[in-house]
Computed example of a mutant assay.
Amino acid sequence: MGTRSAGPDLAAVASLSAGARQWIGLHCGYLDEPSGRAELPVTPRVKALLQLALLRRCWAAAAPADPDLAPVAGTVEQVWRDPDHPRLLTVEPRYARQFQLMYGALAPAGPDADGPHRAVLAEAASGDLLTPRRKSPYLHLETRYYAELAGVPHRLLDYPELYRISRLAGHADGRPTAELDVCNVTHTVFHLADFGFRDPGLGGADLAHARDRVERLTEESVRRGEWDLTGKLLLAQHCLGLDPLSTPSGAAGLRLLAEAQAPDGALPGRSATDRAATGATPVEYFRKSYQSTLVVALTTVILLQGNTIDDPSDMMMAAAPGGVR
């Protein structure tokens, strides 16, 4: 996005970001604690840890010196060193190969570069996962992205062709946007653009088409009070070269998220109609809040990359984190 002046919108995004990042840092360790292993179902916990590893990767690329990154990186590194964790990736057979590929691709670099993920990657590549066989366009694109990230050989289609066969590309003008699945659209954009760290490679007409659909979906998600989906769509706007602080739908989305954020920094649910109940137990509150709060942390740390403001303390304005656990 480049360097912007320290306007109130940027300060508000910094505050939103600081709250979400601090909440995730305070509570992500629960995913690998005995209480978390006992209280959370295995497959949702595995998914949550993969999401955390993706956040760690993007956060380290966007703001490597951020001290709030340390607890997130520490949890990921601890899990990826655990020789028993790979077994959990295969508990749900229909997700096993994809989880294994993601686990291998998101392994943190460093002293444990030859840890358990190497054998897991080899197992994932032993079947037909890394070929085009029997894959939806979305799964094909996701597989290509993580195979490339992992540095493993594959026979998958290239990105331009995968975009051409995507649901986003195939959505005709004049058709209602309700036909589009927001997660499918946003993750298509994320994988093409490496979550904003490369150009998505779309030509003029394709880029205009994708921007139009994402902006219209953002407007609808804001109108419905969808916190999780709005966060993803704001990042998709950024990946397509838009500035969510400046587009009308992006500015409305950021206001929605700032207003929804709880005093402890969490987004306490996926939407205004799905927020955590007042009497929610700590584990219920965690399960309601984790997804949306992680999405906001991921989106805002990328949006704020490269921005400067006059008073660095403005970038860290956030309410004091509170106790999910």
Rank of each mutant, 00 (worst) to 15 (best):
P200W: 05
E142Y: 00
P83L: 10
S289D: 05
S5D: 12
S271E: 04
G204N: 00
D243M: 10
A65I: 08
C183V: 10
H191K: 06
P176Y: 07
Q100R: 15
Y146F: 09
D32V: 13
G151H: 15
S5I: 10
P263E: 08
A319M: 13
G104Y: 00
G29A: 08
L157A: 13
R325F: 11
P321K: 09
V301I: 15
R94H: 11
V185H: 00
D114N: 11
E33S: 15
G322N: 12
P132V: 11
Y138G: 12
L207Y: 11
D264G: 13
P44D: 09
A320L: 14
L88E: 12
I302L: 07
L207W: 12
V79K: 08
R216M: 05
D66H: 10
V182Q: 01
L235E: 01
S5V: 06
P86M: 03
V120S: 05
E179N: 03
L303R: 09
T308W: 15
V182R: 02
R81D: 08
P111G: 14
A272G: 06
A319T: 15
L229Q: 04
L156T: 08
Y163Q: 03
L149H: 04
T43A: 14
E123F: 12
Y103D: 10
A319H: 13
K288M: 07
F99D: 07
A6T: 09
P64I: 14
L157D: 06
G323A: 13
A65K: 15
V182N: 01
Y138K: 12
L298Q: 11
C183H: 08
V182I: 10
G110K: 10
A169P: 08
P282I: 10
L54W: 03
